[in-house]
Design a protein around this nucleic acid. Structure first.
Length: 295
DNA sequence: AGTTGTCAAGCTAGT
DNA sequence: ACTAGCTTGACAACT
């Protein structure tokens, strides 16, 4: 099991998340920001490798405005070598990579313009992973999308639109169960029809479910990942005390985490900790997982 | 230097 | 038909 945290590190003093306002867009500003982001990403990767955190989610903001019409600069060509060298570091360390486009990336939208923008956004994510030279176990995770007053029709639209995606996107795209609209069960229905792997979010599942326990849930999800897809990816978080239902905790609750690990003991997967204090909790989790006597 | 409002993108629930 | 809320880090404009 590889363990990681998403997008940013709070202790190295730089972020791969830098962006700027659309109003201040310029080619120079774009290049400068991407350069800083890629350097920060490299520092983050080094930090993680040194500490044994081998699962990383790369932020979607790494190339600001990448899929926006304002961005007509050929950043792919300009940063090809840099991205390739980052990919080499990743592969050398056998690090696992995921990306998670934002909530407006909706391929099942009724609005065809939203759908088209989503496709461009997914292509951009796939380009990053391709330019890094990563194999198809590097994944792009999205939610199924909106319900639009007709869940079945919206699920069908997802499947039909998924089938039309380019191969470079399809080989990396996975769906994640959410906590309000599409449960694990819904995802399984879609997965069966579209042959798309499911990324299991344990926290969402604890809020929206059909009474499947973690073990059975993860077992059924594991079957949706083929050999070339790599191990299943799992997102883990827990409820922030006194927060709104679904609010992610500030810092890892080790008792809850231990219980979760024990409940899915015997199933192999890579684990992303969606916790606000990022690397701090990830390191605690890594330490705990190494000292638990599991199968 | 520190604080606060605002930012490319959408959906849903509530009025 | 319209708007607040979701969630969230960092920019940008303001004290």
């Amino acid at each position: 099991m590889k363990i990681g945290y998403p997008c940013i590190n709070r202790s190295i003093g730089c972020t791969p998340n830098r962006t700027f306002r659309l109003a201040s867009y310029s080619k120079e500003r774009l290049i400068e920001t991407i350069e800083m982001n890629l350097e920060s990403l490299e520092m983050m990767i080094e930090y993680n490798i040194e500490r044994g955190l081998l699962f990383l989610r790369i932020t979607s903001s790494i190339i600001p405005f990448a899929s926006h019409p304002v961005c007509r600069y050929d950043w792919k060509r300009h940063f090809k070598a840099h991205l390739r060298s980052i990919g080499k570091m990743i592969k050398k360390a056998k690090m696992r990579i995921s990306m998670h486009p934002d909530q407006f990336t909706l391929i099942n939208s009724k609005d065809v313009h939203v759908y088209k923008r989503a496709v461009r956004e997914l292509e951009y994510h796939a380009d990053i992973l391709d330019l890094m030279g990563l194999n198809r176990d590097a994944k792009i995770q999205i939610h199924v999308g909106g319900v639009y007053d007709d869940k079945l029709a919206s699920m069908k639209r997802f499947i039909a639109r998924y089938r039309k995606l380019s191969k470079k996107v399809r080989k990396r795209l996975v769906i994640e169960n959410d906590e309000r609209l599409y449960s694990l069960f819904d995802c399984l229905v879609i997965s069966k029809a579209a042959k798309i792997p499911i990324l299991f979010d344990s926290f969402h599942h604890s809020i929206l479910n059909n009474d499947e326990n973690y073990y059975d849930a993860l077992k059924s999800v594991s079957k949706t990942w083929k050999r070339l897809d790599g191990l299943p990816m799992v997102d883990y978080s827990s409820q922030r005390p006194e927060g709104r239902v679904g609010a992610h905790t500030e810092s890892i609750d080790l008792e809850n985490f231990k219980k979760f690990l024990k409940s899915v003991d015997g199933i192999d997967f890579d684990l992303m900790l969606e916790i606000k204090d990022k690397e701090e909790s990830a390191l605690k989790a890594l330490h705990l997982s190494r000292h638990l006597h599991l199968k």
